[in-house]
Design a protein around this nucleic acid. Structure first.
Length: 512
RNA sequence: GCGGGUGUAGCUCAGUGGUAGAGCGUCACGUUGCCAACGUGACUGUCGUCGGUUCGAAUCCGAUCACCCGCUCCA
């Protein structure tokens, strides 16, 4: 599969997604809410196919991976153990003067050791503002020290000069932005009832590790997989559905023997890249971002992000982290319950390490839409050798002898509809009856679409725009010899075959 | 969160103080023997929302919400 060389604008894509029923703004009739999206009839099929192929690839075809569906609201101490309550908030400070906002933990303060004069805040990745200190306080910068902003008492903020300002006292106090959605369990809103919508599905797996281990009859290495909604109160959702506040994750926690982390990590990176290629994201558009040094969480020994070249930039679809046994250790300590695994072979007792491939369903859906969407110039009549060209996005019109079509070239295995069935003409009852018969048969096995409205060419194009890979047309020959034409979305070519061959042919074409 | 832009039919957009429009799409009927044909007809809007100014507001003003772009942020 070659990368799509048509660069769709997000506006055009959003327009098609709305027009055809892939994605709507949530509660649109009330004006919508920033960061929340609904999937329409086609979008829900697309997502279902993504999730099903992931499940098949990660769970069903592997004897040593089992599934789990944990609840969205869990005991609040789960998030204490995971570090989300402690760390899942970034204290931020705003500058009233420049309107800039900073992460408080990334700001240092350059202050005189006497701590009685003006202090100067600066970002940690910049040089201390020595000149500013000399100019404002008329003192030698050598007598200054740099301390974290969070160590500065609030009452001293009136002596604090913010970056790029000349006056002190423009910074607000650090405010925690907890990115977890908070709610209350039970009808009474009091602090003892506080609970959180999960910000990731992973912790449900760790919290149930003991039960799954006790019941699933698995031996390390083995995995627990989960697909489900997660919620993060993002400060600034952006880029269509890419960063949403409610989203769906597909996560695997693959538990391994300590010391085998590197090889299993590499194994899963490669397995996952292989999967992306099979659902229609070509190698040329996919990248690995290997985290090193500071970018790596303190407990992780490796983390590789899988990125896709979106029209708005190269962005993460999935992170594959080697998390050691950080999470199990945390839960074991916080809950005070033993979660160790007993290895019968070596008679060892240990907390398994874990490899965590964590993917975003909505981001993958968006990537697949971006990759599938293109406008093509197709030759009219028999001219131009029948060669289909990729349209120039800037061109207003197709060149002479060509006409434009919009097509979603989904990999057949993830296309919302697999097959469209058409009677050649709708005013011939015998064609309609035969087409209905074929449709109802195919519809038992695949999501199919029946359409008898309009000219046949128009119906083909309508299916192109929603990415249906195959069109089956019932014509007068069908009534004679039980053959139909099967029209290919990508080549627009037609193949004649008998109805008896149809199911095997489709099965072969749309298989994952 | 800041700055800029945008918001009118399902989509793309015109309409700048005086009766809400076009193209496309959708639906129905007719026609149609394989790639967006044609004819006839139909549906669709509190002009994003709320408030103000005005005899009168899609149009002017304010607020608010949403989307886009640039910052910022993204454990």
């Amino acid at each position: 599969m070659t990368p799509n060389d048509y660069h769709v604008s997000m506006d055009s894509l959003a327009s098609l997604c709305k027009r055809r029923g892939f994605i709507f703004q949530t509660s649109e009739i009330y004006g919508g809410i920033n960061g929340f999206w609904d999937y329409g009839p086609l979008g829900v099929e697309l997502k279902r196919n993504i999730k099903e192929s992931w499940w098949k690839s990660v769970v069903q075809t592997r004897e040593n991976v089992v599934g789990l569906d944990s609840s969205i609201i869990m005991h609040p101490r789960v998030w204490e153990a995971s570090g989300h309550i402690g760390n899942f908030k970034d204290p931020m400070v705003d500058c009233r003067e420049t309107k800039a906002r900073y992460r408080a933990d990334q700001i240092l303060v350059f202050k005189h050791k006497s701590d009685e004069t003006l202090m100067f805040a600066y970002p940690e990745d910049e040089e201390p503002p020595a000149k500013k200190a000399r100019r404002f306080n008329k003192t030698d910068p050598a007598d200054y020290e740099s301390v974290p902003l969070l160590d500065i008492p609030l009452e001293n903020y009136d002596r604090l000069v913010a970056p790029n300002t000349k006056e002190a006292g423009t910074l607000t106090e650090p405010r925690a932005f907890n990115l977890m959605f908070k709610t209350f369990v039970g009808p009474v809103e009091e602090s003892s009832n506080v609970a959180y919508l999960r910000p990731e599905t992973a912790q449900g797996i760790f919290a149930q590790f003991g039960n799954v281990n006790a019941t699933a009859r698995q031996k390390v290495p083995f995995g627990i997989a989960q697909i489900g909604k997660a919620f993060r109160n993002e400060i600034n959702p952006r880029n269509y559905t890419f960063r949403s506040r409610e989203f769906e994750q597909m996560e695997l926690e693959f538990f391994i023997k300590p010391g085998t982390d590197a090889e299993w990590h590499e194994y899963w990176v490669s397995e996952r890249l292989n999967w992306y290629s099979r659902v229609g994201l070509p190698e040329g558009r996919m990248h690995r971002d290997i985290h090193e040094g500071d970018a790596l969480a303190h407990y992780a020994s490796a983390c590789t992000d899988i990125l896709y070249d979106f029209p708005f930039g190269t962005q993460e679809l999935e992170g594959i982290a080697a998390r050691g046994n950080f999470d199990l250790t945390q839960h074991q300590e916080t809950a005070g319950k033993g979660l160790e695994y007993f290895d019968e072979e070596t008679k060892e007792r240990y907390l398994p390490h874990v490899i965590e491939p964590s993917a975003g369903v909505d981001r993958i859906a968006l990537a697949l839409l971006c990759e599938a969407y293109r406008v093509e110039w197709i030759p009219k009549g028999k001219d131009n050798d029948g060669k289909i060209l990729t349209a120039d996005p800037k061109a207003k019109q197709a060149p002479e002898g060509y006409e434009a079509r919009t097509v979603l070239r989904f990999a057949p295995c993830i296309a919302p509809y697999k097959v469209a069935v058409f009677p050649l003409l709708k005013n011939k009852p015998e064609l309609v009856a035969k087409a209905r018969e074929v449709f109802e048969k195919l519809n038992e096995r695949w999501t199919c679409f029946y359409d008898q409205t309009g000219a046949i060419g128009r119906r083909y194009r309508r299916q192109d725009e929603i990415g249906t890979p195959l069109g089956v047309t019932i014509d007068f020959d069908t009534l004679e010899d039980s053959t139909v034409t099967v029209r290919d979305r990508d080549t627009m070519e037609q193949t004649r075959m008998s109805i008896s061959e149809l199911e095997n042919y489709i099965a072969e074409r749309v298989k994952f």
